[in-house]
């Protein structure tokens, strides 16, 4: 299994994920759910631990996140983005709720907005799939200081002010690193679309 897992971190696996989600949505296929569970569960657990959860809480959150994946599979809209990004958002919202004890409504309201508009044609779906790979490439090219800031905010759940404090740089520097990273990403996506 470790082989399957490490090879799955390559970009381009998104098609398989989308097939799995489809099988979940249309056939309530438990084998497909198991594949997704084994692929994403351990990663969601790692994410929660890096966000400050202990192992037991992280394990509970994996349950919540994966059950949500099962229940919401039919709402997943490929035009919105990759399955990995979708699962990240579910994990992010659970993290806000459980680890930070704040309301995730501000996120859920917006997440649902796009789920409600299935205006995707085939072309859009392909673009969305390609988007993940392009973002991957753009991220790989970022200087380490920008990568670090992104990782601290997406994975370690740190507000900008905390990142600044931990890195010993002014808040403005954190913001500008984020803006630069964002700019790089946009550049890459605009080249293609």
């Amino acid at each position: 299994m470790s082989n399957a897992l490490s090879s799955s971190s390559r970009p381009g696996q998104g098609e398989d994920d989308q097939d799995l989600i489809k099988r979940l949505a249309y056939d309530s296929d438990r084998a497909a759910f198991q594949c997704l569970f084994l692929r994403f569960g351990p990663r969601v657990k790692a994410l929660m631990i890096k966000s400050g959860a202990d192992a037991d809480v992280a394990e509970d959150l994996v349950q919540d996140v994966m059950i949500t994946v099962w229940r919401k599979a039919e709402l997943y809209e490929p035009a919105r983005g990759s399955v990995a990004a979708w699962i990240f958002t579910i994990a992010r919202n659970r993290r806000i709720d459980r680890l930070r004890r704040q309301s995730p409504h501000a996120y859920e309201d917006i997440d649902d907005l796009d789920l409600e508009s299935p205006d995707a044609d085939g072309e859009e779906t392909v673009q969305a799939r390609q988007r993940k790979t392009l973002v991957f490439e753009a991220m790989a090219e970022l200087p380490p200081d920008q990568q670090r800031v992104i990782e601290m905010s997406f994975i370690e759940d740190m507000p900008q002010a905390d990142i600044a404090q931990k890195l010993g740089v002014p808040l403005g520097t954190v913001k500008s690193r984020m803006r630069l990273a964002y700019g790089k990403l946009r550049e890459r996506l605009e080249d293609v679309t």
Partner: peptide, 30 residues
Amino acid sequence: RIRETEEIGGNLLEAIDAVPLDAAAFERAM
């Protein structure tokens, strides 16, 4: 723009060093 940015989260989630789940995790979910 937000959807694009969330792909960063998706990519980082895939690249993270996975932490093994409890042996009974999948049965518990089922």
